[in-house]
């Protein structure tokens, strides 16, 4: 197991390096002069030149990359072009709200997806199954922002049960979490269903049944445990979609997270902020996927000998 974890960690190092290269080169393809952006519309040529010098933009690209990297390893992602504030701190201030939202959306998709998926598998080819499969398909086919707007229309404008925007209270979290979690709820329903059907065909389930165990125990104790394995891997991969989806969903609900912030800074071409944001999102994704793989290694010992 130790070897498996160490191997997995070593694998991540080149990926992280490549992530920094992609982040850096993407931003340096951008048209527009960071120095002019920072100096403002009315700045003189000398002022712009001064800033360009101070920001190290006159240096060759590889040197700039190394400068950025040397900051990075010290946890310094540079300063915003817009307000001069440190990128890392600014982003970290907004990250918790988004992680909170992402977590809530996972609760939504697991709380819907797993039970509906089990029910669908246990009652295969019945009306319940058809209904559950239809629901799952609708979930993955809806644009999340449209679903969010429909929720606002119904629960805020018509019924006036929930506030249409903002953050802080539980009521304000319900609709964004639903909007962000619905697509995965559909996906997890489908995965749980197919993986349950697979497991229910196995010999050990037949053995358990023929021993005279109650159906409930067979399903929840014997089958579910093994059926959850593929679902675990999906959760890690889903995180990327959630962080991306947060940009749109936060925009709709005026939710003060990192996604909405990233969007405004993207429009303003605040380069260091965009780079920092891309890097932090990619790092979160990499770390969570290492953790998922390790959990998977514990749950499924065969994988460790891969």
């Amino acid at each position: 197991m130790h070897i498996y974890i160490i191997k997995r960690l070593l694998q991540a190092i080149p990926v992280i390096l490549l992530v920094t290269v992609i982040t850096f080169s993407l931003i340096h393809l951008m048209p527009g002069d960071p120095a002019i952006m920072r100096a403002g519309e009315d700045a003189t040529l000398e002022q712009v030149e001064q800033i360009r010098e101070a920001m190290g933009l006159n240096e060759p690209i590889p040197a700039q990359y190394l400068n950025w990297m040397s900051g990075l390893v010290r946890g310094d992602l540079g300063e915003s072009l817009q307000d001069g504030r440190p990128v890392f701190t600014t982003l970290m201030q907004r990250l918790p709200a988004t992680l909170y939202l992402v977590l809530a959306s996972f609760v939504v998709s697991l709380a819907i997806g797993i039970p509906v998926g089990i029910l669908s598998a246990v009652r295969q080819n019945t009306f319940i199954d058809t209904f559950a499969r239809g629901f799952a398909l609708l979930g993955i086919s809806m644009p999340s922002f449209w679903f969010g707007l429909m929720l606002v229309l119904l629960f805020s404008y018509r019924l006036q049960w929930l506030p249409a925007s903002g953050a802080g209270s539980f009521q304000q979290l319900i609709m964004p979490a639903l909007a962000l979690g619905m697509a995965s709820a559909g996906l997890i329903t489908r995965m749980t269903r197919s993986s349950m059907l697979e497991v229910l065909k196995q010999d050990y389930i037949r053995t358990a049944r023929s021993k005279g165990l109650r159906a409930q125990i067979v399903i929840y104790k014997h089958a579910l445990k093994n059926a959850m394995l593929p679902v675990v891997t999906v959760i890690g991969l889903q995180l990327g979609y959630r962080l991306g989806g947060s940009v749109i969903v936060e925009q709709i609900f005026a939710y003060p997270g990192i996604g909405r912030f990233a969007y405004t800074r993207l429009l303003a071409r605040d380069f260091p902020m965009i780079m920092g944001n891309l890097f932090i999102f990619a790092m979160i994704f990499i770390i969570v996927n290492i953790l998922t793989d390790i959990v998977y290694g514990f749950l499924e010992p065969r994988i460790r000998y891969d």
Binding site: V19, M30, Y241, R269, L278, F281
Partner: peptide
């Protein structure tokens, strides 16, 4: 794959 696709796409669109 580590980058959320939509954000990478947004950055490219901004470029």
């Amino acid at each position: 794959i580590s980058f959320p696709g939509i954000i990478l796409a947004m950055a490219i669109m901004a470029v």
